[in-house]
Amino acid sequence: MPQVPSVNGAALRGPGPIDIALTVNGNAVSARVPPRRTLLDTLRESLGLTGSKRVCDEGTCGACTVIVDDRPVYSCMTLAVACEGKRVETIEGLAKDGELHPVQRAFVDADAFQCGFCTPGQIMSIVALLRATPAPSEADVRRAVAGNLCRCGAYPNIVAAGVSAGRRRK
């Protein structure tokens, strides 16, 4: 553990708007937001990425799930300023050159959504799962999306989509 007291210490930023630099879907971007602004609101309001949804804004639904440094997190409970220097991935970054990501494809094929409002979050959770577990079981998928509520009740198809996306990628 470092024992040397730092002389100046880390800069104190805010409370007004500050410039922050982020990497979102592989692109270096910047935004001018106060420290209290969440990653979710920054994506939606400053960066125009409205795919991540705001449903509860308090870590109780999963609709705002994005991937930060390869791990799924709730962007509504994450400060944007705390993501500086990290890699943020959102639903908008999955499809490449008009080709859907295998998980997106699997969702369409399995009819894994109804209103679609939870869908971006569900998909991001499963994309993160597949990075660690390329061929997940049903139980693996259930564990991964247990933090993503779906009020329409598309769960059976979501689980099927997650399993088949794993198979498809192999």
């Binding site: 309001e45 959102t90 369409v108």
Partner: peptide, 21 residues
């Protein structure tokens, strides 16, 4: 039949009221 609006919904492109800025 797969949903005709499936692609819009899985890519985040579908515009909901909440997404109107």
């Amino acid at each position: 039949r797969r949903r005709v609006d499936g692609t819009a919904r899985v890519t985040g492109r579908a515009r909901y009221t909440q997404d109107v800025y």
